[in-house]
Structures are given as structure tokens and as C-alpha cells.
Design a protein around this nucleic acid. Sequence first.
DNA 1: ATTTAGTTCAACCATATGGTTGAACCGTTT
DNA 2: AAACGGTTCAACCATATGGTTGAACTAAAT
Lengths: 238, 238
Amino acid sequence: MTNKDQNTEEIIKQAARKVFQREGFSGARMQVIADEAGINKMMLHYYFRSKQHLFDVIFEEDYTTLMAPLAIHLRNPELHVEEQIILFVRGYHDTMIKHPRLPLFLVHEFAKNPHKILEMAQKSIPVSKSEEPAHPKLSATTYMDQIEKGKALGHYNDVDPRQHAVSMLGMCTHAFISRISVQTAYEMTDEQYMQFLEERKEEVIDHTFRILMKPDYYKKWKKKYQKERQNEIDNTPT
Amino acid sequence: MTNKDQNTEEIIKQAARKVFQREGFSGARMQVIADEAGINKMMLHYYFRSKQHLFDVIFEEDYTTLMAPLAIHLRNPELHVEEQIILFVRGYHDTMIKHPRLPLFLVHEFAKNPHKILEMAQKSIPVSKSEEPAHPKLSATTYMDQIEKGKALGHYNDVDPRQHAVSMLGMCTHAFISRISVQTAYEMTDEQYMQFLEERKEEVIDHTFRILMKPDYYKKWKKKYQKERQNEIDNTPT
DNA sequence: ATTTAGTTCAACCATATGGTTGAACCGTTT
DNA sequence: AAACGGTTCAACCATATGGTTGAACTAAAT
């Protein structure tokens, strides 16, 4: 008669997600996951066969539902780089504020299982027809191309798009990956840190653009952008 | 008669460092460390009592000899912020190019053992007389103060020094912490990635200053800086 | 040469841990 | 109400793993 509560599987996944994100694969214990889920350890194997398989399911789900959608912005040819960046950075912060352990979890497990990188790249496909690079899902061609165009137009600084991308990513991830150190150093409470992250969202966008844009273009863009922000806020009554 | 080769201990530490950095505490196996060192597993306990103790020794040594000296630059009141940043970022890249797994290792273990953060802060003391903040060794008062001064003088943008510091740190760490993903995405060989990191060193300094400085001040500084660099290179014949 | 003490090892131990067994439970079908 | 089959559990198993034992080895000291 299939799943009495039709959600034991989901309960297990929630518990496993929590424990794996906190402890990593090798640090996680099946018994701890079972306790966290409030069920018998055997259920884990009944529903997911093995620790490895349960982990793979969680890892893939985390990656494809949380991380992959963000990367898509950077490959969206409908958007201008500036919009790509804004959507990516805001989306990143919004997602990770809800899942603060995710960045370190993904990075750590990718480091221990490099093969998963391309594996995940394959799976996070929202169907695309013709992208050429060897690993299309990992690349951000549109983003890179547009930066080159912006440079040619004299809007952007002469920055290596790859370096720029790594800087942007780093600015996004660090506040989450090194959260405990940062929070300790700044002597912040959890609430204060949440506030810090919320502010950081727009701050990172600003930093990213300061790196990318020539001063004149930056000023022009900033003026336009702040007007739009104001309209947004006005049209979003609480 | 003490250590036949007077370096068994050192051999063990080298092996343990390698394995712990690669696998993390919970992923590391004593047998693997022994094999890596080419000795009997019992030696590990003879010299270091337990896995936990061996780990603690490695962790503290890694932190105090490699990470802590870099942080000191940001607290050195003898230096101007710009010099602090240059020394920190260059030092960071030089150190981590030699120990590429260190950033992820430290971050991961700090996340699992937050208490180690203040513990390490205590130990990395090159003796100081009167610093006030609750956790002096974690703070970077001089750096923060000087940024406020630079803002008052109109040299710097109106940036939150804490946000600026996190951005700088993130730009430094990401190329190491997410190395495998970045290298895969850019389809680089190990040699190409080394080149990328070498270039990145000066690039991060540039990005950091673009975020911090007002355009005019940035231009002035850049000119002066490039002249100095040229002199350095001229005076350093290969 | 014998003693002494630090060093090294093969074999062993106890526990932790991922995984399995066999029976009980329970709603549905007949 | 009997049979069925998906679900749940307590107890169990095999192996992995951190840690220990006791003896052997080595080189300096006597």
C-alpha cells in the first residue's frame, strides 16, 4: 500500500541532508541520521540501500535544486551581464541564507570526489540545444563573451573575465564558507550576522561592478540602478 | 639515546599533514598515515598518543606557521593599509601555492570545531602588550581604523570595512578552496592553473583596491605602484 | 660484554559502524 | 477472516578502525 505517511522517504532525506551538510560524508553516521529522523536505522537502508547511495541522492538534489539554478543566470543569453550578475549574486545570497552550510558542503565533497563535478554538470540540464564547450554546463560563455564586448565598447576595465568570475564567486562564498571565523572575529550574534549577510548581498554586487566597470560607466549605471531599486521598493508595499 | 634518525617524528608529521589535509580528520585513517610515512602504525601512537592529538599538533602547526603570519600584516601599525593589503594578498598566494589544500582544510575543521578558532587566536601570539578587543588576535584593528581614516580623507569609497575585508578574503581563498571546480570549468592543466594563480596574485590586489579607492586616488596610486614594481623588477636580475 | 633505555614491530583487542536477518505490524484485497 | 504485501523494528553480523601488548632491536653507557 506504499508509504504509510507517504513521506518517510522525505523525512529521511531531511535528516540526512542536515547531518551530511554538518558532518560531511565521512563524518556522518547512519545511526545519527536515523536518530535525527526519529526512525530505525534499518529504514535508511530500506529506502536508500547504502550510505553512499543516500549521500549521492542528497548531494545531487542539493546541487541541482539549489546551486545549478543560480549558475544558469550566467549562461542566459537573454540577459545583459549586469543583470546576470545581479540575479546570480542576489540568488546566491537568498539561497545560502536559507542553507548556510551548503557552500562548504559542496566544496568539500567536490574536493574529495572531483569526478562528481562533471557528473553534476551533466545532470543539471534544463535542456539546451546547441552549446559547444566540452563541459557546457560548467561554462558561462555568455557571461564571458559579454564582458569581452563591454571591454571593446570601453565600458569595462581590462580585466580577465576568468579572474573576474573567480573574484565574484569568492566574494559570494566566503561569508558562508568561513562564517564562523568571520562571525567570531567581528563578535557578532547570529542575528547581527544575518543582517550582515543581508547587507552583503547588495555590497557584493557593488564590489563586483567596481571591479568590472570603468568609473564613468559605473557612475552612470549606479544612478540608473538606484532609481530602479527605488521604484521596486515603492511598488512593493509591505 | 633519542630518535635514531632524530626525524621519525618529522616524517610522521609530514605524512599526517598530507593525509589530514586531503581527507580531513574524520576521513583520515591512521593506517593510511602510517603507510604514507612508511612505518608501523604503532609509531604514530608512540610519538603522538592518539589520532586526535596528532591532528591537533598538525592543525596548530599549520595554522600558526602558515596562516597566522599573514594575518599579522593586517595588524601591523607600522604599515599603511595599502602595504598591509599587498603583503597579505601576496603572502597568501605564495603560501597557498605551496600548500594548496590548506585553505579548505582549515575552513572545514574550523567549521566542525568552532572552539578551535579562539584557541588558535590565543596561540598565534608574537607577544603584544596592549590590544583591547575581546579577541585581539582575530581582529584587524589597524586595518579597519586606517580604512575609516582613508574614507575621511576622501581617498576611499564609503565602504563598510568589514564587508571589504570579507571580499578581499573571499577573493584570496576561492581560487584555492574551489580549485577543482574552477580548473575543470576553465579546462586548465595543472601548469595553466599555476600560471592563473600567479597572475591572480596581482589581480586580487588590483580588485581589492578598485573596491576600496576612489577612481582618482586609485589612478594616482596605480601609477606610483607600477613605477615601484618596475624598479623592483629592474633591481632583481634573474 | 653486559646493561640500559629509547625505538620499532607483528599480532592482538575492543569498539564503532555499515549493513542484514527474520519476525511483527497494519492497512488493503478477496 | 484469511491472505497479501509494503513497512517497521530489535537483534545480530562482519569488518574497519583506533588503540595496546609484549617482545625484539639498536646503539650508547658502564
